[in-house]
Amino acid sequence: MTATVRTVLGDLDPAELGVCDSHDHLFLRSPRLPGEELDDQGAAAEVLRAFAAAGGRALVQWTPHGMGRGGATLAGLSRGAGVHLVAATGLHQAVHYDPDGLADLYDGLAGLFTAELTTGLRGAPAGTRAGLIKVAGDYHGLGEHTRRVMAAAAEAHHATGAPIAVHHELGTAAPDVLDLLCGRYGVPPRRIVLGHLNRLPDLRLHRHLAASGAYLALDGPSRAHHATDHHLFDTIAALAEAGHAAQLLLGGDTTTRGARHSPGPTHLLTALAPRLAREFGPALPHQLLTANPARAFAAEWAAP
Rank of each mutant, 00 (worst) to 15 (best):
P188S: 04
P189S: 03
P189G: 00
P189F: 02
R190I: 02
R190T: 05
R191Y: 05
V193K: 08
V193L: 15
V193C: 08
L194R: 00
L194V: 01
G195P: 08
L197P: 05
N198D: 13
N198R: 02
N198F: 03
P201K: 05
D202M: 00
D202I: 04
L203R: 08
R204G: 15
R204F: 00
R204M: 01
L205E: 10
L205H: 05
R207L: 12
H208I: 07
H208S: 14
H208C: 08
L209E: 02
L209S: 02
A210W: 01
A210N: 04
A211F: 00
A211I: 01
S212Q: 09
S212R: 00
S212V: 04
G213L: 03
A214R: 00
Y215T: 03
Y215P: 06
Y215D: 03
L216R: 05
L216T: 05
L216N: 06
A217V: 08
D219V: 10
D219G: 10
D219C: 06
D219K: 07
D219R: 06
G220I: 11
G220V: 13
S222N: 15
S222C: 15
S222P: 09
S222H: 12
S222W: 01
H225R: 14
H225C: 05
H226L: 12
A227Q: 14
A227R: 14
A227K: 11
T228D: 05
D229S: 13
D229T: 12
H230L: 10
H230P: 06
H230F: 08
L232I: 11
F233V: 07
I236C: 04
I236A: 01
I236E: 04
A238N: 08
A238C: 12
A238Q: 05
A238P: 10
A238T: 11
L239E: 01
A240Q: 11
E241N: 09
G243E: 12
H244R: 06
H244I: 00
H244C: 04
A245F: 07
A245E: 08
A246T: 05
A246K: 03
Q247H: 13
Q247E: 11
Q247M: 10
L248E: 03
L249E: 02
L249R: 02
L249Y: 02
D253Y: 02
T254K: 01
T254H: 13
T254E: 02
T255D: 04
R257W: 06
R257I: 10
G258H: 09
G258W: 04
R260L: 15
H261L: 11
H261G: 07
S262W: 00
G264Q: 07
P265F: 09
T266N: 03
L268N: 07
L269Q: 11
T270M: 06
T270F: 00
L272D: 05
L272A: 07
L272H: 08
L272W: 12
P274I: 14
P274E: 12
P274T: 13
P274F: 06
R275N: 07
R275G: 01
L276Q: 10
L276F: 12
A277Y: 09
A277P: 10
A277D: 14
R278M: 06
R278W: 08
R278C: 04
E279M: 12
E279R: 15
